[in-house]
Nucleic acid binder design. Sequence first.
DNA 1: GAGCTATTGAGGGGCCAGTG
DNA 2: CACTGGCCCCTCAATAGCTC
Length: 309
Amino acid sequence: MRRLPPLQTLHAFESAARHSSFLRAASELHVTASAISHRIRALEKFLGVALFRRDGRQVRLTSEGESYLRAVREGLALIAAATERLHVPRPGGVLTLSVAPSFATPWLAPRLAGFQLQHPELEVRQTTSIELVDFAKSDVDAAVRYGGGRWPGVCAHRLFAEELVPVASPQYRIGRGRLRKPEDLRQATLLHVMFRLGEWRVWLKAAGVTGIDDQRGPKFHTTPLALEAAIAGHGVAIADRALIADHLKSKRLVAPFDIALPSEYAYYLVYPEDRKDNPNIVVFKEWLLAEAARPGEAGSRDFGTGQSN
DNA sequence: GAGCTATTGAGGGGCCAGTG
DNA sequence: CACTGGCCCCTCAATAGCTC
């Protein structure tokens, strides 16, 4: 069995030698100078050698101390390097997300349970907001945002681009008939989302439909509210095909026309550049990009380049 | 003499192995 | 499982020695 002194006596010795002061070593190691003195004494007793020469209120290394310091530093550096190699940051704790309502309710919420099953050690807290989050002033770790993908100071990963399609309840009727062609929208109630009021105008223009007041109809604060109104049969909403895939699959909504309007904007996962190695963000990013790229998801049709800015 | 720093001894809290 | 005693290491307070 090798004779090894207690590790903390070596730590105290290295610090006191580096500072040539017990007091500064104590401050560095968050103990009192008395504790440092005790540790050094214990080490000297253990070794049977004086490591410091006490000159009044100054301490200086003896020649034995100098030589021992070199070996101790080498040893501590080896331990530190080995520890660093073994220390793999692991996810855990809380991950706070800020998500656009149009993304949160129809797309993210049904899938998030799968992520929690994979990572029970991580508690995901989700808030919805249509405002751009200020990472510096909030406790939000990451966000899903809709836009052009160029925001300063953040990493942005494109999830999928939008394809806008009109949707309605399968039971929705105009007069006595069903929606069959875009021109039928002249008799339909158009449902709008407040902060995306231009979408109907752009879609109608792309579909070549004229003579419709594209501003008429009820306005809703968020996309999920407009979709709920559509499901309830109150009119025709316009939404991203990927985000309503579950509604289309379950036939709560139908897309009566085969015209999808590609958008220059897309949904992005964004987070501050200085948090790109945060293990919580890393695992969530990997999961989210994989979900967006799954066959049948929007990502399979137009999965982004994963670019970051 | 004041201020700073190291030393010393007392006392206390936490940990752990041994014991009933 | 709870208790006990020993050990370790810390802080605190007093003291000593040095410098300005």
